[in-house]
């Protein structure tokens, strides 16, 4: 495997030295392009109190291509599907090489605070979120309690 680009080294160093509040991202011991991520559920959201595990992988042509990110912890959210895949514009067509791991994770954290049921990935969840928001939020809290706590 080719040597790690300076860009990835710099980003990793900064993530370690000045971590983003509520987010931890640690590179895997055997693969510096694979990160173990933990995002804490934002305050005043149905995910509050939960610790959500994610995996983040930097592809060969990063930063020209977006990192691949997936939730490992089960989560009840209209923009995240059963396999943990995330519907977020900056991970797809709105990706810019000037964005970083840090900005991506911040955006994911923001997505937890502000779900967007009009641009859904998990259709049944989005549907409930639109027609009966309080029940959807109850479900999200229940899933957070069941899957994202005491791990």
């Amino acid at each position: 495997m080719a040597a790690l680009p300076r860009r990835i080294i710099k980003e990793t160093q900064r993530l370690m030295q000045e971590p983003v509040p509520g987010i931890s991202a640690v590179p895997d011991d055997s693969n510096a392009r694979y990160f173990h991520v933990i995002v804490t559920g934002p305050e005043d959201s149905p995910f509050e109190g939960g610790l959500f595990k994610l995996e983040l992988f930097l592809p060969e042509d990063y930063p020209m291509s977006a990192p691949k990110v997936r939730f490992i912890t089960k989560i009840y959210h209209p923009n995240i599907d059963r396999l943990g895949r995330i519907c977020l514009d900056i991970l797809k067509d709105k990706w810019s090489p000037a964005l970083q791991i840090r900005t991506v994770l911040l955006s994911i954290q923001a997505l937890l605070s502000a779900p967007n049921p009009d641009d859904p990935l998990a259709n049944d969840v989005a549907e409930l979120w639109k027609v009966n928001e309080s029940e959807a939020i109850r479900n999200a809290k229940e899933w957070t309690r069941r899957y994202a706590m005491d791990n």
Partner: peptide, 10 residues
């Protein structure tokens, strides 16, 4: 005279 590229940070 010297600039750090925001993409490759070189």
């Amino acid at each position: 005279r010297y600039i750090t590229c925001p993409v490759c940070v070189i």
